[in-house]
């Protein structure tokens, strides 16, 4: 009841009325929280620039029991992540991290695993990590956190082991399909052994600890597989993931963050 406090990351927001702002946060203790920051857009606002996208800090808010829109009292900034605004590529990659965090997060229900995943990815991006592979690592881990980790070791349907070579991935089935089971499957996409190797590696250790490199074709294959599967499972397009595709001269593959 009343005042609540939690570690939080700003994952979204939009303007409200004259000078207020609705801020969307992912909090460690209470999951997704939407709160109104009064006067946040005024140049001399008490919030300063602390409520900008990606900010990590300590949130204090007044919970309104009858509404899912609360009142933001205080946000003590820990990490502003200014480095994430130094290129459009980096800003777009970080946007995908918080956008997916918002799609996966639930109001009123905190997940320490999801919180750590979002914060870990932002930190890696901010500290200079190859962008597209970090995003792919983030995406496969996000699927695991959501309980949608695809079966990539045996046939998802009959549990038999798979022959060597290029595999078939069933979107509806949520995993690889053996030559017998893939017959009746509706939506499938192919996955190469190199792509599967990357996915297995990406699930190990700390986020971004892997040193795997991929040729452009395999990179594109992994991107397509993970984004298609995530959008299929979440039932919504990931806007940031498609953002740079339509802009000539910008690509996540041409630039690492620093």
């Amino acid at each position: 009841m009343g005042l609540k406090s939690s570690e939080a990351i700003v994952i979204g927001g939009h303007n409200l009325g004259e000078a207020d702002r609705i801020v969307v946060l992912y909090t460690l203790s209470y999951g997704k929280v939407r709160a109104v920051a009064a006067g946040a857009r005024r140049i001399r606002s008490r919030f300063g620039g602390s409520l900008e996208l990606f900010s990590h800090g300590r949130l204090v808010y007044f919970e309104r029991p009858t509404s899912d829109l609360h009142r933001l009292n205080e946000f003590a900034l820990c990490e502003p992540f200014h480095g994430l605004r130094t290129s459009l590529e980096l800003l777009t990659a970080a946007s995908e991290v918080v956008e997916l965090g918002g799609m996966a997060g639930v109001e009123g229900e905190g997940s320490a695993e999801l919180f750590a995943l979002i914060l870990g990815a932002l930190r890696r991006l901010n500290n200079g990590m190859e962008l597209s592979l970090l995003l792919r690592t983030f995406e496969i881990r996000m699927l695991r956190t959501l309980g949608y980790l695809p079966e990539i070791d045996k046939c998802v349907r009959c549990r038999r082991s798979l022959p060597e070579g290029v595999q078939s991935f069933g979107l509806n089935e949520g995993g690889l399909l053996c030559p017998v089971c893939r017959g009746g499957a509706m939506e499938t996409t192919t996955v190469s052994p190199a792509a599967l190797g990357f996915l297995r590696e990406a699930l190990q250790g700390e986020i971004g600890s892997s040193h795997v490199t991929l040729i452009p074709e395999v990179r594109e294959e992994v991107r397509y597989l993970l984004q298609t599967f995530l959008e299929f499972k979440l039932g919504r397009r990931i806007r940031s993931a498609r953002f740079l595709a339509g802009i000539p001269g910008f690509s996540l593959d041409t630039l690492s963050s620093h």
Partner: peptide, 15 residues
């Protein structure tokens, strides 16, 4: 002179 997160429209002339 401009704090992050604000709207230009609300800035005072000096700032």
């Amino acid at each position: 002179g401009l704090p992050v997160g604000g709207d230009l429209e609300y800035a005072d002339e000096v700032t």
